[in-house]
């Protein structure tokens, strides 16, 4: 496979076939809580795209040059057997928390309007499993740095698509006659099931 095609394939896979919400169940907490409103869903979707695209490559660099087995050989050959892999969870989550804080400060300084629309969602994102999940999958699948960037961005777009779709459906059915105790989360789960089934139709597409 040639260069561009390969990246395009990773991208479509991350957006449609292995959608991070609908196929891997990541980020569902905010997915269900925020999809009550469409504009808020667009906001958190954008924030997830930004944070995933930034944190996945940073964590890749840390994994490759600090944490994985034999990663420290660039300091000295004595470290060839050193394996700091057990620190990965703590390091990744701290990077994510710190990056979220940084992005928030950056936005506040340079784009007030963007901050006003995305600002309140950023703290929520630090504990959104899709962000940590993105980094962990990147390690498990042994992506290179450029693949990681594409994968992070693609997963973000996938989250965006899924949450905006669910929010629109929930908006449409707001006056429907649903059994009272199925209302809210129960119904949202069933709708997500149907959405996920629809996204499964993409599986088998190979670029």
């Amino acid at each position: 496979m040639t260069g561009l095609e390969h990246y395009l394939s990773i991208f479509t896979k991350a957006v449609f076939i292995e959608n991070i919400v609908l196929a891997y169940f990541l980020g569902l907490c905010s997915f269900l809580a925020i999809s009550k409103k469409i504009d808020a869903s667009v906001g958190i979707g954008m924030a997830v795209i930004v944070v995933l695209t930034i944190t996945a490559p940073i964590n890749w660099v840390l994994w490759e040059f600090l944490l994985s087995k034999g990663a420290l050989v660039w300091i000295s050959d004595d470290f060839v057997d050193t394996d700091l892999g057990f620190l990965k969870l703590i390091v990744f989550i701290s990077v994510i928390a710190a990056m979220v804080q940084l992005v928030e400060m950056f936005m506040e300084r340079f784009s007030q309007s963007l901050y006003n629309s995305l600002g309140i969602f950023l703290p929520l994102i630090a504990v959104n499993c899709s962000i940590l999940g993105g980094s962990l999958f990147m390690v498990e699948r042994e992506y290179t740095i450029s693949e990681t960037v594409v994968y992070g961005f693609g997963s973000g777009v996938g989250f965006f698509l899924a949450i905006v779709a669910l929010a629109s459906i929930r908006y449409r059915i707001r006056y429907s006659n649903i059994p009272p105790r199925l209302r809210g989360v129960g119904m949202a789960m069933l709708l997500t099931g149907l959405l996920s089934m629809a996204f499964m139709a993409f599986s088998g597409i190979d670029l």
Binding site: P179, L182, M189
Partner: peptide, 16 residues
């Protein structure tokens, strides 16, 4: 995955 969502949706309904 769709099965998981649908079953959980139904379980939530019954539990509520």
């Amino acid at each position: 995955s769709p099965g998981a969502f649908i079953i959980l949706g139904l379980v939530i309904w019954v539990q509520r």
